[in-house]
Design a protein around this nucleic acid. Sequence first.
DNA 1: CAAACTAGTTTGCAACGCAAACTATATTCG
DNA 2: CGAATATAGTTTGCGTTGCAAACTAGTTTG
Lengths: 102, 102
Amino acid sequence: MSNDLRGLNDLDRLIHEPARLLIVTILSTAASADFLFLQREAGLTKGNLSAHLSKLEEAGYVKIEKTFKGKLPLTVCKLTAKGQKAYTAYRQQMQAFMDKTS
Amino acid sequence: MSNDLRGLNDLDRLIHEPARLLIVTILSTAASADFLFLQREAGLTKGNLSAHLSKLEEAGYVKIEKTFKGKLPLTVCKLTAKGQKAYTAYRQQMQAFMDKTS
DNA sequence: CAAACTAGTTTGCAACGCAAACTATATTCG
DNA sequence: CGAATATAGTTTGCGTTGCAAACTAGTTTG
């Protein structure tokens, strides 16, 4: 016993948040995704997706480019190297937890 | 593709919180644990442990009994059936996510 | 009897997540 | 043309959260 689980306490909260974990997961397999695709895929409202993306961008986990598709706004999101790394680390910690407690 | 990951959005937030996930995990393998043991094992401050335990108790996930060891207060915590079930469900969902995205 | 220790609880507050309201441009319809 | 509707997002309002720090109550030690 005396299993060391305290690692959980330093999970990256930015990624731990389910909505953002979802976003980052989608981005990690997509190379690039636009706002509406993310919205559909993640099942979030525009408002909440917008807020979460801002947070991820602020952290440097996601790069956001606003352009146009024809005449309509188009917001394209990409996971940065930093974001990819944080995501990988998160998964490692979480899987380690699952394994230690299986 | 078009993997359905949206299940993440209904993770039980009570258990998803790392400090509480830690507490519940410890309780799930201990049958019963006192306040100070939990504190040491989880690496939490007394204040935060107290607050998290209250929340878990309120949800009916943990049963808390205050007694005495000699003349000193002794708070003993047990996971309830409901808590055990919620914990199991959480693990299942999280592992499903990990598997689907491995 | 005052200081220090034990075992917790409560408080103060910034940050968070969500729903609802809002902005800005574009298109459609009478 | 001008009002209504749609598209693609952003901002706001607000109750809730988690954390650190302060507090409580009883106990032991000097």
